[in-house]
């Protein structure tokens, strides 16, 4: 998922991304001042196109970049740029061919998703939470990053982000978040 390049300032006029500070994402690609930075519009569109998360879900939030392509979602006040340790939570990895949401983001906002959600039985959910890969040939939706979910207390609940390729669901739950349940 590449952000539209053409209508922004030409590459030569753009600042280099400073990996040490948080910079707020520009509204649209045309307003971009930092080289290669995704726009808010592209991020919100990505969540809508891929997962069916309604764009208005993010009306009260701002998006920020720190490091190369690491996007953060924040609900508070802050000027841009700002040099602090963290701002809200990491939500997405950009500056790569396939953008990748984080497990923590998916657990927080994935309940709003309607597409590319793979519903797991309890035993499959257990393996997913433990960080294991598993063959799930029955899935006939899209390949790529999916939201894995299961049912808990009578409702669907997102577990984290998985990568589905060649009949296999790979758990992308980070090591520190994996649990033997």
């Amino acid at each position: 998922m590449a952000d539209e390049r053409a209508d922004g300032a030409s590459e030569g006029e753009l600042e280099q991304n400073d990996g040490q500070q948080f910079g707020r994402l520009p509204e649209t690609a045309a307003e971009r001042t930092v080289e290669g930075r995704a726009s808010r519009e592209a991020v919100v569109d990505y969540f809508a196109d891929r997962f069916g998360i309604p764009p208005e879900t993010f009306d009260d939030y701002t998006f920020w970049e720190k490091g190369a392509g690491k996007i953060w979602i924040y609900g508070g006040d802050a000027p841009s740029p700002i040099s602090i340790e963290a701002i809200g939570m990491t939500c997405l990895r950009t500056r790569q061919e396939h953008w990748k949401p984080t497990t923590d983001f998916v657990q927080r906002f994935g309940r709003h998703a309607s597409d590319c959600v793979i519903d797991l039985e309890r035993e499959e959910a257990r393996r997913f939470a433990a960080g294991e890969d598993q063959d799930l040939e029955w899935w006939n939706g899209d390949w790529g990053y999916l939201i894995a979910a299961h049912e808990i207390a009578g409702e669907r609940e997102p577990l984290g982000i998985g990568l589905y390729v060649h009949g296999e669901l790979r758990s992308m739950v980070p090591k520190g978040r994996q649990r033997d349940l």
């Binding site: 979602i73 963290a86 923590d104």
Partner: peptide
Amino acid sequence: AERLGATSLAVTNDDARNYSLERFDF
């Protein structure tokens, strides 16, 4: 903060005794 999904947190690393608010817009 990430595990609990807190999006309203801004995290700083300083000595609280001489904390500066200059980095913020309030």
